[in-house]
Design a protein around this nucleic acid. Sequence first.
DNA 1: ATAAACAGTGAACCACGATTTACATCTTCA
DNA 2: TGAAGATGTAAATCGTGGTTCACTGTTTAT
Lengths: 215, 215
Amino acid sequence: MVYRPPVAVLERRAELRECLVAEATAIVSRQGWAGLTVTAAAAAAGISAGALYKHFPSKASLATEVFNRAAGREVEVLATALADSSYPDVVSRLANGVATFAWRAVRGRQLAYSLIAEPVEPPIADARLALRRRYRDVFAAVIAEGIERGEMLDSQIPEISAAALTGAVAELLVGPLSAAASGPAAELIVGQASAIALRCAGVLGTGPHNDRRKS
Amino acid sequence: MVYRPPVAVLERRAELRECLVAEATAIVSRQGWAGLTVTAAAAAAGISAGALYKHFPSKASLATEVFNRAAGREVEVLATALADSSYPDVVSRLANGVATFAWRAVRGRQLAYSLIAEPVEPPIADARLALRRRYRDVFAAVIAEGIERGEMLDSQIPEISAAALTGAVAELLVGPLSAAASGPAAELIVGQASAIALRCAGVLGTGPHNDRRKS
DNA sequence: ATAAACAGTGAACCACGATTTACATCTTCA
DNA sequence: TGAAGATGTAAATCGTGGTTCACTGTTTAT
């Protein structure tokens, strides 16, 4: 071989690749997967559609990379919130985790919708299955710990409760209900989401009860 | 006008239209929306693709009719189960409703997935929104009644809990968890789904508790 | 200086389904 | 009988995006 690209070129190449992923992510966060065409992504990064194929073998490849990175970030944030050791009990950690999850969905609403519910082509649908599984596993671990420590109902199956919890919160945040959620409405929904999540997870202790005094 | 189609012809025409809807529904129940092409639907009904347009103005029109009819049936069944007056209390009715919902999803799994979660083109996505709203409303009514009668937590908002409940059960039944659900596993999931739904709805009374005796 | 490797361009090219069209057939009713 | 309406067929047409292709300009190592 008589040509070996020098470091500077390789760096620029890597940079452009990153730029493509970043721009594609921005498009999805703004317009959803429907807006992510090869032409649009390439144009946003300042190159032509054909050139994109010098960096990704196919659109699906770019799309799944975008998905997986964004999904990874979300799961990471959730896992971190769920592991926050400044809370003494598992229940508080769960509440904190759900609230975090919820807030992130309320702010990047379009991205949350795109990750969780928007119609997508098959390769991304697969990645989405994996995402759901990861959410489930993360929640399931917390529930299992809660059962272990006697803070949660022990007749439940952590994986199942976790899946339900994931679905419940997702529907709440991404579904039609929160579509029109302005500031205060959003707070209400996030608050309710946390409460519901705890009930879902079979939190023991005081248990659900109504106040005697009527207002 | 010198031609007025006689009753027999009109009947046959209506019959064929029904046949198209039925065949299209069958395709969706078997292969999902992905399998529902104009050609396939027409062929199943024994006509050519072009002829289908004598009965429906567009594919979207046929598809939404298929969706809405199937969705209507599901909601109807659920509403009936939730209204079963042979149960004395609201809680039992809710449990019964969720179990019915769940069983139907476990048997027609593909159809349930298609109605609730499969990627679809925009016109059907709209119809799906409406379906989710209907599910939510039906559950919300029951929860509201439960609160009214003092059987459920009164600090919740029925619509929100109902949305969460819908999402939870949907995720459970249509998500990856129940993908491999053979007979006994399915029963387990349905059972858990009912239990989770009751917790979600903030059922009072005995509340979640662990048995003292360890096995 | 020059062959080789490579990013990039812009214009084809292609696959896939939905729709439309041109034409044939049949039926009704003046 | 024959003009008009309706159904049906098969093939052509269209739109949309992803993907490929032929070619250009640039850079590197001999």
